[in-house]
Design a protein around this nucleic acid. Structure first.
Lengths: 337, 337
DNA sequence: CTGACGGGTGTTATCGCTAACATCATCGGT
DNA sequence: ACCGATGATGTTAGCGATAACACCCGTCAG
């Protein structure tokens, strides 16, 4: 009964108990310098005794600022985006920010604009958009410039602040690794071409081939699914000259492995395969998959840092940060037979 | 310049433009019945013209309520929890609620309590805890009863409102499917035993065996990883009497597949395997995996419903809801050789 | 000795909204 | 023609915090 009726303690309740004014309580809470140590302790004690917790709505009302960060992400369980999101939530939480996630079914202009609007309604301090393809990146043109915004995995050709895994370097390393194992060239099964991640990996792959004067075979375009990797793999498996494949992610690689297996082409004896992402189960594919591991936690940290810079400095720092991934060698690569 | 100085329009600005009082604007916004249609239109027009958006902080301050739901989840990319979270965020978004995610590194009492506190600081309307193991469930004892709370994948033996996939039925179906293919018994590679999901699947498996008078072999305990599935699989592969395995999730099953493969035991010819979760790539394992598919979207919907009931009725409806999964048949099951 | 300075504290106004009450037509029933 | 009910609107008082300013009191330079 009592519990229902009694309202949460407010700042004035604390003030009364500590024998000071509510403003002094506010000063203690905000670590203002001009408070006597003794007073500070009394107030702290009163806060604790009452179980007082500041009302964020009241604070937000008067300051016009919130401690909320909005994230717009696609409603998918793709390993990359999911890891990124999870890492970002953790990083933001540790920095004292709450994260409000706006999921979007498809990454089109309209949905993203709507999600951004919902976040603005909430008066978020800033927004992070995981914008891995061009339609998502296009949608950002609609976002008013007064709102701090960072894109992750977004369009490298846009001036928006951006944090991303260095796809080019990862793909370059993977391809070079295969070439150095002795393969004449390396085939590539790509993710959807409108994804920047996929595009960046294609570029890195091509650059590595050109650097080593290897022939550049046609790109096998796919989506990110094991299904499409399987389809591409079926074609590759029929071509005897294919001895090395770099797949744009681990699930594509999984599909390729299966296609090779069905066709009787042994990995890595007949064909070498490298993936990208290092999903947790990649070490248990048949055979264990050599792949490229991005550091999602680092991406998350940089993203948060960039966003908070914008929030505090009010400047649209036109910066971008890139995180280099590392090659993880397992058992899916060998010299050509 | 102007843009920086001019503050966002407030209700009084709209009122002035529409030639009414701010209270009338409030009435229009909240769909109060007693507003003349003509007035309503004038106000709507003014809102649009100014690009007015209500200040949630001010509203929350006066009503004492927010449109925010807190979610506590582990910082993992395990397929089940990640799918659940994603589905919940979407469902809540569609219902007009913002979702604040508090990630936790480990599911121990202290971390969860801290995450819940952070959410209470934000004055969330209710909390969802994805509490898949006993330490997580224990932590909920600390949560004050005055806060609407729903657990997902939590402890079936606790009175807390709970929504969960019907693990027992799924495991029962999977096991029965193997028995009906002609196997004498079915071995089980289990997830961590302190996870309710894993425990429920063990029970369903055992029930099915007992129902068919099959011998109940010892449980092979593992964690959720492909690595541990592989280890369990190595043991099973050495035992010729093992002809059917039910793994507690698809990644464990993947590990088992690999172990069988290495030992030269063909799946499904020599050994049949069934998983749980239906991860997107399960159809591209070697061979395509027969598995059990939970409906995460349904779980999310029910969770939201249960939570909103509590929020509006203030009652701790002691209810729980269970979503039955379905068996997806692919090519990893065959009659024993 | 005095006035300027600054640390510690209190007072008051204000943020943008909703709740509660007040006001004023309008209208149907007697 | 009068009256209470009802509908449409306005007025006022907070919600719980911070900001801005006022105030008191020592300390110290002139």
């Amino acid at each position: 009964m009592d519990q229902k009726t009694t309202r949460d303690p407010a700042m004035t309740d604390v003030a009364r108990l500590a024998g000071v004014s509510h403003q002094t309580v506010s000063r203690v809470l905000n670590d203002h310098p001009n408070v006597r140590e003794q007073t500070r302790l009394r107030v702290r004690a009163a806060i604790k005794e009452l179980g007082y917790r500041p009302n964020r709505a009241a604070r937000a009302l008067v300051t016009g600022k919130t401690q909320l960060i909005g994230v717009v992400a696609q409603n998918s369980t793709l390993y990359g985006p999911a890891s990124l999101l999870s890492a970002f939530e953790e990083a933001a939480g540790e920095a004292g920010f709450a994260v409000s996630v706006g999921r979007v079914k498809v990454l089109d202009r309209e949905s993203i604009a709507a999600a951004v609007e919902r976040h603005r309604d909430q008066r978020v301090a800033g927004i992070v958009v995981i914008a891995p393809n061009s339609s998502a990146a296009d949608a950002l043109a609609d976002v008013p410039a007064d709102l701090p915004l960072v894109t992750v995995d977004g369009d490298p050709d846009r001036p928006t602040p951006l944090v991303t895994v260095d796809q080019g370097v990862g793909a370059y390393d993977a391809t070079t690794h295969l070439l150095q194992a002795g393969h004449e060239t390396v085939w590539h099964v790509s993710g959807p071409t409108d994804w920047f991640d996929a595009a960046g990996r294609v570029q890195g792959w091509r650059r590595a081939l050109e650097m080593h004067n290897a022939e550049v075979p046609p790109v096998m375009a796919a989506d990110w699914s094991a299904a499409s990797g399987y389809k591409a793999g079926q074609m590759l498996a029929r071509m005897p000259e294919v001895t090395a494949v770099f797949a744009s992610n681990d699930h594509l690689a999984l599909g390729v492995l299966r296609a090779m297996h069905e066709r009787g082409r042994r990995v890595p004896h007949d064909v070498s395969v490298v993936g990208f992402d290092d999903v947790p189960e990649a070490a248990y594919f048949i055979p264990p998959l050599t792949t490229v591991r991005p550091d999602f936690a680092a991406v998350a940290r940089e993203t948060l840092g960039l966003l908070l810079e914008q929030v505090s400095e009010g400047e649209s720092a036109q910066s971008r940060r890139t995180i280099a991934p590392v090659l993880v060698q397992r058992e899916s690569v060998a010299p050509p037979a």
